[in-house]
Amino acid sequence: MKATTGISLLIIFFIFAVILASNPSNSQEEVQDPFPEVLAKLTYLNSMGVNVTSLVDDLNEALMLYQKGNISQAMSILNEVNATASSLLSRADETHFRQLFEKYTEAVLLLSIPLIIYVALPRAYAYFWYNSRKNWRVKKK
């Protein structure tokens, strides 16, 4: 009786093991996917104004290799992209603030053009007008 129960439990355990092995859940699959973590870094860098175009291309190349089953080469490229992304993360704030500074400086310069025209144009025009005619002589008719 005990032997029969033991064999039954063993069979049930075996069936469960086969089912679990043949039907991995989506959550397990997502945990194993190494690409979102690296892509999240690249997306953040992109939002901070860092040019990540070539890194995304490299990551896509790694993904293609990964899907073809060339795991070792894919992971090698993935690790390279991850290392580069991590090193760029420390400079992301600096890049972001530099771009903001350049943007607002450009805006201030553009807005100051009418003021410069208002102040400088009549003076510059008068200066060149008098300069171009300073050697003129008045002739008696």
């Binding site: 943007k103 100051s112 053009i113 009418p114 144009l121 008068a126 007008w129």
Partner: peptide, 27 residues
């Protein structure tokens, strides 16, 4: 230009419109 205020006003108006438009596009 110095004698005709209207010419100067037109130049100034064009510069104001262009600078505001450029700033909006940047920001």
């Amino acid at each position: 230009l110095l004698q005709d205020d209207e010419v100067f006003a037109v130049i100034l108006a064009v510069s104001i419109v262009a600078s505001v438009l450029g700033t909006v596009l940047i920001l």
